[in-house]
Simulated assay, not measured.
Amino acid sequence: MLLAIDAGNTNIVFALVAGETIEARWRIATDARRTADEYAVWLSQLLHLEGYDRAAVTRVIIATVVPRALHNLQTLSRKYFATEPLIAGRAPVEWDIALDIDEPASLGADRAVTAIAAHARHAGDLIVIDFGTATTIDWIDYRGAYKGGIIAPGINLSLDALVAAAAKLPRIAIEAPATASVIGRNTADQMHIGIYWGYVSLIEGLVRRMRAQIARPVTVVATGGLAILFEAHSSVFDVVEPDLTITGLAILAARAHI
C-alpha cells in the first residue's frame, strides 16, 4: 500500500492509497520542527485505529512546498516504513507534463501534482482551483501542459489579516452567511458577508477573465479542503474533487514502477 504525503504550508495530509482508492487520510498541522519520531508515534496510532499495521505501507511518496519539513518526512519513511521515499518532481517521478511558464522551477510541487491528476481525470482545457493557505487558480491545456495561473490569499489568511489589523473585529467562523442578504445588520454578519461573498466574487471574477483569455471550452475543477464550502453557493465549478493532490501523487507513484 502507498503512503502519500502532501506537505503544505498549513497542514500535512497523510493518505493510504490502494490502487486508485484512498483508503484513509489524516491531517496534522505543518511544523518543520516536528521530528520523524513524533510523526511515527502519531501516525502509528492512527493506522492502528483504522485497522492497519505499519507493515501494510510498502511505498511512500512525498510532495512538499515546505523544504525544511522534507528531511524529517524522508527519515520517517526510511526508519519506520523501511522504504526510500519517492519525492515528487525528482527522479524517478519527475513531472511528465510540460511546464509552459517563465520559471518552471518555481512552480510548487502541489500545483504540478494537482495538474497531473486533473489532466488524467478530465479531457480538454481545465481551470483548477485549489483552496489552501493560498488559493491558486491554474490553467492546464488540452494537451496536459501547465500554462500558468493565479495566486491569491486563501480565505483563512484573508480573515486572519482582517482580524489582526482591526482590534475591535471578532474572530468568526468561515461559513456561508445565514441569510441571502448582502447588507449586514451587525458586525459579525457584515464580516461573514464580506469574507464569504467577497471570496465567491473573487473566484467567479477571476475564472470569468481566464475563460475569456483561454477562448476555448474549459472545465473548472475545484479541489482542497475548503472547496465544498463554496460549491453550494456558486455555479462556477463543474466538478469538485477534494483529494486531487493525493490522486496526483498516486498517479506519479504508479508510473515510477519501483
Rank of each mutant, 00 (worst) to 15 (best):
3 L>Y: 01
4 A>M: 09
4 A>L: 06
4 A>Q: 09
7 A>V: 04
9 N>P: 03
9 N>G: 06
10 T>I: 13
14 F>D: 04
14 F>K: 07
16 L>C: 07
20 E>Y: 04
22 I>S: 01
25 R>P: 05
25 R>F: 15
26 W>H: 14
29 A>F: 00
38 E>F: 03
38 E>S: 15
40 A>E: 15
40 A>M: 05
43 L>P: 15
43 L>K: 03
45 Q>H: 12
46 L>T: 01
47 L>N: 13
50 E>Q: 14
50 E>P: 05
54 R>G: 00
61 I>G: 00
67 P>D: 03
68 R>F: 13
69 A>Q: 07
71 H>M: 10
71 H>Y: 11
73 L>W: 01
74 Q>M: 11
74 Q>T: 05
76 L>G: 08
79 K>G: 00
80 Y>C: 03
85 P>I: 13
87 I>W: 12
88 A>C: 12
88 A>Q: 02
93 V>Q: 06
97 I>A: 02
100 D>K: 05
101 I>V: 15
104 P>W: 14
105 A>L: 15
105 A>T: 10
111 R>T: 12
112 A>T: 01
112 A>N: 01
114 T>P: 06
116 I>N: 07
117 A>K: 03
121 R>E: 11
121 R>V: 01
124 G>R: 15
125 D>T: 10
128 V>P: 04
131 F>H: 15
131 F>T: 15
131 F>Y: 13
143 R>G: 03
144 G>L: 08
144 G>C: 06
146 Y>S: 14
146 Y>Q: 02
147 K>E: 11
151 I>T: 07
153 P>F: 14
154 G>E: 04
155 I>K: 09
156 N>C: 00
159 L>T: 09
161 A>D: 05
162 L>E: 06
164 A>T: 09
169 L>A: 08
170 P>S: 13
171 R>I: 09
173 A>L: 02
177 P>H: 05
177 P>N: 06
177 P>W: 00
178 A>R: 00
178 A>L: 02
182 V>E: 04
185 R>F: 06
185 R>M: 07
186 N>C: 03
189 D>G: 03
189 D>A: 12
190 Q>D: 05
193 I>E: 05
194 G>A: 08
194 G>C: 08
195 I>T: 02
196 Y>N: 07
198 G>M: 11
201 S>W: 15
202 L>V: 06
203 I>R: 05
204 E>P: 06
205 G>S: 06
206 L>M: 14
208 R>D: 08
209 R>V: 04
210 M>N: 06
211 R>M: 04
216 R>V: 12
216 R>C: 09
217 P>N: 03
218 V>D: 06
219 T>M: 13
223 T>R: 07
224 G>L: 06
226 L>C: 10
226 L>S: 12
227 A>K: 12
228 I>H: 14
228 I>R: 15
233 H>E: 11
233 H>P: 01
235 S>K: 13
235 S>T: 07
240 V>Q: 04
242 P>W: 05
242 P>G: 05
244 L>M: 04
247 T>G: 00
247 T>C: 02
250 A>I: 02
251 I>Y: 11
251 I>H: 11
252 L>N: 08
254 A>E: 12
